[in-house]
Simulated scan of single mutants.
Amino acid sequence: MHFRIRAATKEDCKDISRMIMELAVYEKMPDQVKISHEELERDGFSQNPFFECLVAEVPEEHKSEGGFTVVGYALYFYTYSTWKGPSVYLEDLYVMPEYRGNGIGKGLLCKVAEVGKKKQCVRLQLSVLNWNTPSRDFYAAKGAQDLTVSEGWHFIRFEGQSLDDLANEAPKD
Rank of each mutant, 00 (worst) to 15 (best):
33 V>R: 00
18 R>G: 01
29 M>W: 12
6 R>G: 05
23 L>K: 00
32 Q>G: 05
7 A>M: 13
19 M>K: 05
7 A>G: 14
10 K>T: 15
23 L>T: 05
10 K>G: 10
26 Y>D: 01
10 K>D: 01
16 I>K: 04
5 I>F: 01
34 K>S: 10
15 D>K: 09
32 Q>T: 10
12 D>I: 13
16 I>D: 04
11 E>Q: 13
14 K>L: 11
16 I>W: 07
24 A>V: 13
22 E>F: 00
12 D>H: 14
28 K>E: 11
35 I>Q: 07
24 A>N: 04
11 E>K: 13
21 M>E: 08
8 A>L: 05
9 T>W: 05
17 S>K: 15
11 E>I: 14
26 Y>R: 05
15 D>F: 06
34 K>P: 04
19 M>A: 00
25 V>L: 04
19 M>F: 04
18 R>Q: 10
27 E>S: 12
34 K>H: 08
31 D>T: 14
35 I>G: 03
5 I>P: 03
18 R>N: 03
32 Q>N: 11
6 R>T: 10
30 P>R: 09
17 S>T: 10
13 C>A: 09
23 L>N: 05
19 M>N: 09
32 Q>S: 14
32 Q>P: 00
29 M>I: 15
33 V>Y: 00
31 D>M: 08
12 D>Y: 11
13 C>Y: 04
28 K>S: 07
17 S>L: 07
12 D>P: 07
31 D>C: 01
8 A>W: 02
31 D>N: 15
21 M>H: 11
12 D>N: 14
24 A>H: 12
31 D>R: 10
28 K>R: 15
24 A>G: 10
22 E>P: 01
10 K>C: 13
15 D>E: 12
30 P>I: 07
7 A>L: 12
12 D>R: 12
26 Y>S: 08
8 A>H: 04
21 M>C: 09
9 T>F: 12
22 E>S: 05
35 I>P: 03
20 I>P: 08
29 M>G: 05
14 K>H: 11
24 A>P: 02
17 S>N: 14
25 V>M: 06
35 I>L: 04
35 I>D: 09
30 P>C: 11
22 E>H: 10
21 M>Q: 05
32 Q>Y: 03
29 M>E: 13
33 V>W: 02
13 C>T: 08
23 L>V: 00
27 E>H: 15
21 M>V: 11
7 A>Q: 14
10 K>S: 12
5 I>C: 00
21 M>L: 13
26 Y>L: 02
34 K>I: 07
11 E>H: 14
18 R>H: 14
33 V>K: 06
31 D>W: 08
32 Q>V: 06
18 R>D: 04
9 T>S: 09
28 K>Q: 14
31 D>H: 15
33 V>T: 02
32 Q>H: 12
24 A>T: 13
8 A>Y: 00
6 R>L: 03
12 D>M: 08
24 A>W: 11
6 R>E: 00
12 D>L: 14
13 C>L: 09
22 E>R: 07
20 I>M: 06
17 S>P: 08
24 A>I: 08
22 E>I: 03
22 E>W: 00
25 V>Q: 13
29 M>S: 15
17 S>W: 15
